[in-house]
Amino acid sequence: MDGKGSSRIVRNVTCMLSVPVMVFGLYVVLHGHLTPGGGFAGGAVMATFIALFMVSFGKDISRRLDSGPFSVSESLALLAFVGIALLGIQVTFFSNFLANSGLLFGLTVPFGTNPGFLGTGGVTPLMNLAVGLEVFSGLSLILIVMFRSGGDGDNA
């Protein structure tokens, strides 16, 4: 891993690939209550873009990535997860108070197989978003901190 990074073609393709990778990861997170996926898998898909960025841009540019915003967003997302769980405290700790009601994600689901409706699900899409943001920030923090420090191995 020398400091220069890859050639100009690889850098341009990485910049062009940023939009499909992040949009696909956000799709997997947001449709967690309809298709297979959910918060953890979608957050990991979003975090592989940071690894691609660090490989194609080299050590000189990737050392200047700041770890402050990722740390703040990870803590805020975990606090939002606990806060959503505490909102339905009238019934129990993790109660789904938005399902089958008339509020934000509260359409009723027709029984049996159906094409998925995005407005259903209750509290689960909000919790999927919180967990997806937390996993993305946490894995990006691990990659950034490990890439920056340590001995200058100059191997591989």
Partner: peptide, 13 residues
């Protein structure tokens, strides 16, 4: 994705 990337960073250092 992530596990292989962490291993590659660790081996290269």
């Amino acid at each position: 994705g992530i596990s292989t990337a962490v291993y590659v960073i660790a081996v290269s250092k």
